[in-house]
Computed example of a mutant assay.
Amino acid sequence: MTHEVTRESLLARVQQLAPVIREYADRGEQERHLADPVVEALWEAGLYRLLIPRAFGGLQVDPLTYYHVLEALARVDGSTAWCVFISDSVSLSLAFLQAEAVEAICGKGARVLISATAFPFGRAVSQAGGYRVSGRWPYASGCWHSTWHMAFCNVYEDGTVEPQSDSTGKPELVLAYFPRSQVQILDTWHVSGLSATGSHDVEMKEVFVPKAFTWKLTPQAPRGPHFGDALYRFPFLGLYGWPIAAVALGIAQGAIDEITRVTQHKTSPLTPGTLRERPLFQTQLAQAVALVRSARAWLYEVVTKVWEKTGHGEEISSEERAEFLLAATNATRNSAAAVELAYTAGGASANYHKSPLQRQLRDIHAVTQHIVTAPIQYETSGRLLLGLPLDDPAMLL
Rank of each mutant, 00 (worst) to 15 (best):
I105P: 09
S87H: 10
V133D: 12
V125F: 08
V84D: 07
R123N: 10
H149C: 11
C143T: 10
R136V: 14
G142A: 04
F152R: 07
W148Q: 06
F152D: 02
C143Y: 12
G130Y: 05
V102H: 05
F85C: 00
A124L: 08
I114Y: 05
A81E: 11
G122H: 04
V90K: 02
F96V: 01
G129F: 05
S87T: 11
A110G: 09
A95W: 02
A124V: 07
Y139Q: 13
W137D: 00
A110W: 05
Q127K: 14
A99T: 14
G107A: 11
S91P: 02
W144V: 04
I86T: 12
E100W: 07
W82T: 08
W137N: 00
A101W: 06
A140Y: 04
A95G: 13
A101L: 07
W137R: 00
S89M: 01
A140R: 06
W82H: 15
T147R: 11
I114Q: 03
P120A: 10
A124F: 13
A151F: 13
D88V: 00
A151G: 13
R111N: 01
S115Y: 03
V90A: 10
G107F: 07
R136G: 09
R123S: 11
W82G: 01
F85K: 05
F96R: 13
H145L: 00
A128M: 05
Q127T: 07
G107Y: 13
A116R: 07
C83E: 14
W144T: 08
Q127C: 05
R136K: 15
A116S: 14
L97V: 02
A140P: 04
L113M: 12
D88G: 08
G129N: 09
G109R: 09
W148K: 01
Y139N: 13
V125Q: 04
W148S: 03
A128L: 05
G142H: 08
L92R: 12
F121Y: 15
C83G: 06
T147N: 12
G142Q: 01
D88A: 11
A104T: 10
A140S: 14
G130I: 03
C83Q: 12
H149F: 14
S89A: 15
G135N: 11
P120T: 09
C153W: 08
A110N: 15
S126I: 15
D88P: 01
M150P: 03
S91G: 06
G109V: 03
G135Y: 10
F121C: 06
F121Q: 11
S146R: 04
F96I: 02
A101D: 02
E100R: 14
G135V: 06
R136L: 12
